[in-house]
């Protein structure tokens, strides 16, 4: 049984039909990437999985369990955590308070403190700024904080939405290294990226989305080698 199974998802914004029957799976231990242009429905797919949006049709299952009637905030305890697009750190909370909010569903203080230490080991920059209000962090630091915050709840499946957006090239590399090391710790990842080349390099499989539909689904290597994909999404002529 797949860890995450999405079947025939239709999501609307008012009358706009944004997802027109998306189906995909993520197996335990995989990194799966969604690539596609702006407006293809990548973020909408993630937000529907995390139940910020309610689909008009279709199901999302976690290990076979239907999530249709689970409120968004309950997903965290079930093991799904999303790092939203644009990082969305709580700007007026300190770095440490942000991390504690990531562990909101955990009651055990020792586990929370241990999680914070783990986050600081992964991103030493955050430790230096632990008492700082996170609105004052740089974009890269905010991305680190958003990822560290998501890991606080010890997810089994991490939904990452455009983690490299707007970052300097060296930081992009660092973020992708981090994604690989989070994966090495046994977290399955569903990764949405504009930066398709890098995403396909770390993923095992990928889906190409176009105007709310799955255009292609294949192994990452095959997608990266595909002429059409290279032309349309990898910036080759």
């Amino acid at each position: 049984m797949a860890l995450l199974e999405v079947e025939d998802l239709h999501t609307y914004y008012g009358n706009i039909h944004a997802l027109k029957g998306i189906s995909l799976t993520v197996e335990e231990g995989e990194i799966v990437t969604l690539i596609g242009t702006n407006g293809a429905g990548k973020t909408t797919t993630l937000n529907t999985i995390s139940r910020l949006l309610t689909p008009r049709q279709g199901t999302v299952r976690l290990e076979g369990q239907d999530l249709s009637h689970v409120p968004a905030h309950r997903l965290v305890t079930m093991g799904i955590v999303q790092v939203p697009e644009g990082r969305r750190v709580f700007a007026r909370l300190t770095v440490e308070e942000n991390l504690r909010m990531g562990a909101f569903t955990i009651k055990d203080k020792a586990v929370i403190d241990e999680g914070i230490e783990r986050g600081y080991t992964m991103f030493p920059r955050l430790k230096e700024r632990s008492k700082q209000v996170s609105g004052t962090l740089s974009g890269g630091e905010q991305q680190m904080l958003a990822m560290a915050r998501a890991l606080m709840a010890k997810p089994r499946l991490l939904l990452l939405d455009e983690p490299s957006m707007g970052l300097a090239p060296t930081l992009v590399e660092f973020i992708f290294e981090t994604i690989t090391s989070i994966h090495a710790e046994g977290v399955s990842i569903l990764l949405v990226e504009q930066n398709a080349l890098q995403a396909l390099a770390v993923a095992s499989r990928g889906y190409v989305l176009q105007t709310g539909k799955v255009l292609m689904a294949d192994t990452a290597a095959a997608l990266a080698a595909n002429e059409d994909v290279r032309r349309a999404y990898l910036g080759e002529i």
Binding site: S50, V76, P84, F90, L93, M101, F104, T105, A153
Partner: peptide, 24 residues
């Protein structure tokens, strides 16, 4: 407090707070 910090988080961003497992 934890609940107080959650209130501040919800004040800032309800969707993200829900993604953190906070009951908005």
């Amino acid at each position: 407090s934890r609940a107080g910090t959650a209130i501040r988080a919800v004040s800032e961003d309800k969707a993200t707070a829900a993604l953190m497992g906070i009951d908005v």
